[in-house]
Design a protein around this nucleic acid. Sequence first.
DNA 1: CACAGGTGCTTGAGTGCATCAAGTAGTCTT
DNA 2: AAGACTACTTGATGCACTCAAGCACCTGTG
Lengths: 135, 135
Amino acid sequence: MTEAAESLDQQLWDFVYAYDAAYDAAARAVGLSAAQACLLDALTGGSRAMGELATELLCDASNVTQLAARLEARGLVARDPDPVDRRVKRLSITPAGRQVHQTVRAGFDFPADRLGRLSDPERRQLSQLMSKLLA
Amino acid sequence: MTEAAESLDQQLWDFVYAYDAAYDAAARAVGLSAAQACLLDALTGGSRAMGELATELLCDASNVTQLAARLEARGLVARDPDPVDRRVKRLSITPAGRQVHQTVRAGFDFPADRLGRLSDPERRQLSQLMSKLLA
DNA sequence: CACAGGTGCTTGAGTGCATCAAGTAGTCTT
DNA sequence: AAGACTACTTGATGCACTCAAGCACCTGTG
């Protein structure tokens, strides 16, 4: 055989590796870490409470505090007290943040670039396989 | 529709997320970080020079030094000077390290568990799609 | 041989992510 | 109004990672 077919396990490993690397690079290109980019992404749907974000990102609340502080320092995110429950701080993305987020999304070429190699039926196939794997 | 089909982009994101989490959990179960487990894995084929490892893991040499130091402290890895070029330190996995590595591999249930849901033809399909994506 | 330059690794300093424990406000229950 | 609970912050710690500087060793040139 011309190209010894790698095992599926190895292929998945490589795939995940490339995917992670691409995301990290896209974030880093605008001076963000992957974690910061994730947080920003979680805010695109509207403002969220810190605790909500911690649950969603599966991490400690104090972790969100730190990430938010760094993003706030760059003016990408705003932290406002909830008018109803003053314990709660609501995080929202600023216009500058939305701009940066768009740049990350655009620079995250993995889906665009690599998925472009697949035909429509192939993409449907992959989608079906994924839904089985994710259950 | 019963289950709004997620977009393929989202599915891939979720897949990668689950994969990473599973690996991390498997490593953590034996008290290793994902990075340490990766380093250990890179040694299963035989001893490697520190620099080689840095290139392979796409990180700084001093990073490898630190990771190796932690693994060495646990007796999972041995660091011996190369007899030919005494600048070079060759890292090799110890029997204890091999043991731990096996445990990680066994605990990394992602492929075993999730891939088990696919039939043989489906696995072949996925493998072909992956090879297109990885080019 | 000697010595200048290159190589391989380590050290030290600094940053960020992540987690835990403890603290502070604010809310809710009774 | 007191006590329990909640939401977030602070402080401390550990690891991953990077860069700059340093040390030991090798190598090519004269």
